[in-house]
Computed example of a mutant assay.
Amino acid sequence: MFKKLPKENMGSSNLGWLESRFHFSFAEYRNYENMNFGVMRVLNDDIIHPSSGFDMHPHNDMEIISYIVDGEITHKDSMGNSEVLKRGEVQYMSAGSGIVHAEHNESTSKDLRLLQIWIVPPEKNLQVLYGSHMYTKDQRDNKLLNIVSSQEGNAEVKLYQDVNIYVSELEKGKDLEFPIEVRRQVYFIQVEGSSSVNGVTLDDGDAMEIIQERSLDIKALQNSHFLFIEMLES
Rank of each mutant, 00 (worst) to 15 (best):
Ser13Pro: 03
Thr201Phe: 12
Gly173Thr: 09
Gln222Glu: 15
Asn223Asp: 15
Asn36Met: 07
Lys110Pro: 06
Trp17Glu: 13
Ser132Leu: 07
Asp175Lys: 10
Lys137Met: 03
Ser150Ala: 10
Met62Glu: 06
Ile210Met: 14
Ser194His: 02
Phe26Met: 03
Val42Ile: 15
Gly98Lys: 05
Leu126Ile: 11
Gln212Gly: 00
Thr74Ile: 05
Gln185Glu: 15
Gly199His: 09
Lys124Gly: 08
Leu145Thr: 11
Glu106Trp: 14
Asp77Met: 11
Ile229Gly: 13
Leu144Asn: 06
Gln185His: 14
Lys172Pro: 04
Gly98Met: 09
Ala220Phe: 01
Glu181Val: 02
Tyr160Gln: 00
Ile117Tyr: 04
Leu18Cys: 10
Thr108His: 12
Val84Tyr: 02
Glu209Asp: 12
Asn14Ser: 09
Asn31Asp: 15
Tyr92Thr: 08
Leu18Asn: 08
Met79Thr: 13
Ile210Phe: 03
Ser132Glu: 10
Asn9Asp: 10
Ile180His: 03
Val200Pro: 00
Lys86Ser: 13
Ser107Asp: 13
Ile47Asn: 14
Ile165Lys: 06
Lys86Gly: 11
Pro179Ile: 07
Glu192Ala: 14
Ala27Ile: 03
Asn164Gln: 12
Glu19Ser: 12
Val39Glu: 04
Leu216Gly: 01
Leu145Ala: 07
Asp175Pro: 00
Ser224His: 05
Asn164Cys: 10
Val148Asn: 05
Met208Trp: 03
Lys110Gly: 06
Glu209Cys: 08
Tyr160Ala: 00
Asp204Arg: 13
Phe188Gln: 08
Gln127Ala: 12
Val163Tyr: 06
Ile64Phe: 04
Tyr29Val: 00
Lys137Asn: 04
Leu18Lys: 11
Leu221His: 01
Ser20His: 00
Pro122Leu: 11
Leu145Tyr: 02
Tyr135Ile: 08
Pro58Asn: 15
Phe226Leu: 02
Lys143Cys: 11
His75Arg: 13
Ser25Lys: 00
Gln116Lys: 05
Met1Asn: 00
Ile210Gly: 04
Ile211Val: 15
His57Met: 10
Arg140Tyr: 11
Glu169Ser: 07
Leu221Val: 01
Ile229Thr: 14
Leu216Asp: 02
Val90Lys: 12
Ile211Thr: 15
Arg87Val: 10
Val120Leu: 13
Ala27Met: 10
Val186Tyr: 00
Gln151Lys: 12
Ile147Pro: 13
Ala102Pro: 15
Met231Trp: 01
Gly131Asn: 11
Asn146Thr: 09
Ala155Ile: 01
Ser109Phe: 13
Ile180Asn: 03
Ser12Glu: 12
Val167Arg: 10
